[in-house]
Simulated assay, not measured.
Amino acid sequence: MAVADRERWDARHAAAGAAGAGPSPAPPDALRGREALLPAPGRALDVACGRGTVAVWLAARGFAVDAVDVSPVALDAARALADREGVGERVRWWAHDLDAGLPGAGPYDVVVCQRFRDPARYPDLAARLAPGGLLVVTVLSQVGEGPGQFRAPAGELRAAFGDLELLHHVERDGEASLVARAPLTSATRSSRR
């Protein structure tokens, strides 16, 4: 991502902070009403975490969270939210350009990517999942909205994550969301019996 993109996001997050009340913890959009799908607390990755609402929500549920965003301004707001909610020690914040790939290594029990679309990163998201791990993705979509530079064509998420067990998928009103689970390995299956 170019420096101009980071500066644009910094300005956007600074304006949001200046507009009033800070963010509140919240589940990822695709998981609302499906929170029971969350696995037992373990490790979570929040990609393009913005001001940290999802990362802090996961940390409050016992997950150790790695949260990544290009904007230092967003990460400052995220740290403040985590501290305010008493989970600051459960989240590791990374300022990182996602055009260079995903930082850190998995496996993660939950991987969330909300409002960031880069099909080149899709294999990285799936590769970071632990066996049985949950993937939660929401992107802008052409479905119900029409074409656009940052909008996914119909069926993109389903095709990209076809090797995972699909738990929820919807495309409408300019958004596409997917919740899927990584397959269990044979060793994991036998240990759960």
Score class of each variant (00 low, 15 high):
residue 121 R to C: 11
residue 88 G to W: 07
residue 88 G to A: 14
residue 151 R to L: 10
residue 151 R to T: 01
residue 129 L to D: 00
residue 102 L to E: 09
residue 109 D to H: 10
residue 93 W to G: 04
residue 143 V to M: 08
residue 90 R to L: 08
residue 140 L to D: 09
residue 107 P to W: 02
residue 81 L to W: 05
residue 109 D to P: 03
residue 79 R to I: 06
residue 95 A to C: 15
residue 132 G to N: 03
residue 143 V to F: 02
residue 96 H to A: 12
residue 83 D to A: 15
residue 152 A to R: 05
residue 142 Q to W: 02
residue 102 L to I: 13
residue 111 V to S: 05
residue 138 T to K: 02
residue 148 G to R: 06
residue 150 F to N: 14
residue 109 D to C: 05
residue 118 D to F: 02
residue 153 P to T: 09
residue 119 P to Q: 09
residue 81 L to E: 05
residue 79 R to L: 06
residue 106 G to W: 02
residue 141 S to D: 01
residue 86 G to H: 13
residue 135 L to A: 00
residue 156 E to N: 10
residue 139 V to H: 04
residue 96 H to K: 10
residue 103 P to I: 10
residue 117 R to L: 15
residue 106 G to I: 04
residue 114 Q to W: 05
residue 119 P to V: 07
residue 89 E to R: 15
residue 150 F to D: 15
residue 119 P to H: 05
residue 156 E to S: 11
residue 112 V to Q: 01
residue 123 P to A: 10
residue 79 R to F: 03
residue 116 F to R: 11
residue 93 W to F: 15
residue 139 V to R: 00
residue 118 D to Y: 03
residue 146 G to T: 07
residue 107 P to L: 09
residue 150 F to E: 15
residue 99 D to Q: 10
residue 144 G to M: 08
residue 107 P to I: 09
residue 96 H to L: 13
residue 117 R to C: 12
residue 96 H to Y: 13
residue 121 R to T: 14
residue 122 Y to R: 08
residue 157 L to H: 01
residue 142 Q to L: 02
residue 80 A to M: 06
residue 97 D to V: 03
residue 141 S to W: 00
residue 120 A to Q: 12
residue 149 Q to A: 14
residue 145 E to M: 09
residue 92 R to N: 12
residue 109 D to T: 08
residue 152 A to E: 04
residue 91 V to S: 11
residue 80 A to G: 12
residue 78 A to L: 04
residue 93 W to T: 11
residue 96 H to R: 13
residue 111 V to I: 12
residue 149 Q to I: 08
residue 114 Q to D: 10
residue 78 A to D: 03
residue 130 A to R: 03
residue 107 P to C: 08
residue 83 D to Y: 10
residue 123 P to I: 11
residue 144 G to D: 04
residue 106 G to M: 05
residue 155 G to L: 04
residue 154 A to F: 03
residue 127 A to D: 07
residue 150 F to K: 14
residue 109 D to W: 00
residue 150 F to R: 15
residue 117 R to W: 06
residue 98 L to H: 05
residue 140 L to K: 06
residue 116 F to A: 06
residue 132 G to F: 00
residue 103 P to R: 08
residue 105 A to G: 13
residue 119 P to W: 06
residue 145 E to A: 15
residue 84 R to H: 13
residue 85 E to M: 13
residue 105 A to L: 13
residue 114 Q to V: 12
residue 142 Q to N: 05
residue 96 H to V: 11
residue 121 R to G: 07
residue 112 V to M: 08
residue 104 G to R: 10
residue 113 C to S: 14
residue 138 T to N: 05
residue 84 R to P: 13
residue 120 A to R: 14
residue 84 R to E: 15
residue 156 E to A: 12
residue 92 R to E: 15
residue 120 A to D: 13
residue 82 A to H: 05
residue 116 F to T: 04
residue 97 D to L: 03
residue 138 T to R: 09
